[in-house]
Design a protein around this nucleic acid. Structure first.
Lengths: 169, 169
DNA sequence: TATTGTTATACTCTATAACTATA
DNA sequence: TATAGTTATAGAGTATAACAATA
């Protein structure tokens, strides 16, 4: 008994005046993309922040938690529990830092590198599903446009502003 | 004394293998866009969900809260406090629904319509700032690519999946 | 005295469930 | 009995601040 039809697909007039602007679509599709990727990671038992951490440690082994947090824009207190997770699951190892007994040196285990590969597969599947509507050329085109926005806006490559606030589904 | 350089802009190798993929960029730039827009709305004293509510009420006045919630994917309990906000600030009015004394009919006040105009201005400024790196043609091009993804992914026009989890700054 | 990692606490936000008044 | 709106409660997640060990 829809008193006013919003549930079904009727041509809504003013509702979407701004809804087809690049800015709104960007936020909308971006949130969808992040949620879908988080959903896939959940299948591996990880959250997006875990993936970011594994990726950065892999890129520069022996990293301290301080440096890791700075690179990913994650607070130290939050890092502790995230790394605890990864360590308990045997993906990451905290070793003594040579020269500074306060800090830890972070390393990936073999299991951690396997997990990283699984994440890579999930990312590729995610991308294929997300961009199913586009040709290869169009995907490149889209990436180039987005990269120019990202550069101009001063976004650091590989750093997701919303690492914090992303949950699956 | 960066033990491992992540803070500054050194050519990072494996860190960003996937960081320039359309999928990651989409999530990254999308989150940035949403945060920036929320920041602008904060200047008006609103959160993104408020803007969505005003927009939908304007599109179909006399709406019930039920219908509104269905249209925006917002839970009834959450709607109550959001509409309370808007009513206390004199932007929205809850009138008796003719024919069903359980439900309310929602209307925009003059102040509410003014707020909507202010939101429109904020949105335009936001878009100009966000897409500063692109020409008009490129913005259209970007919007078209995003719209095709949105359609194929089954996203409803005007409905932001992350209306919930967006905070300014 | 400053810094690394850690722990404890408080705060925000969202969802779930109970409740009322109508239908 | 079911539904609209409301209220209350609990849960998840994050940030802030205090703390111990080391520099």
């Amino acid at each position: 008994m829809s008193k006013a039809g919003l549930t079904t697909s009727e041509g809504s007039p003013a509702v979407m005046r701004g809804a087809s602007s690049p800015a709104f679509l960007l936020a909308q599709v971006g949130a969808h993309a992040a949620a879908k990727f988080a959903e896939r990671l959940k299948g591996i038992g990880l959250v997006p922040a875990h993936a970011g951490i594994l990726r950065v440690i892999d890129a520069s082994e022996g990293l301290s938690q301080q440096a890791l947090g700075a690179g990913l824009n994650v607070l130290p207190s939050r890092l502790v529990v995230l790394i605890d997770d990864l360590e308990h699951r045997g993906l990451v190892e905290r070793r003594d830092h040579p020269g500074d007994r306060r800090s830890h040196a972070l390393f990936l285990t073999t299991k951690g590198r396997d997990a990283l590969k699984a994440i890579g597969r999930a990312a590729r599947e995610h991308q294929a599903a997300l961009c199913a509507a586009l040709t290869d050329d169009e995907r490149t085109q889209l990436a180039q446009l987005l990269r120019r926005i990202a550069d101009q806006q001063g976004l650091r490559p590989g750093v997701h502003p919303g690492f914090s606030r992303l949950r699956p589904s």
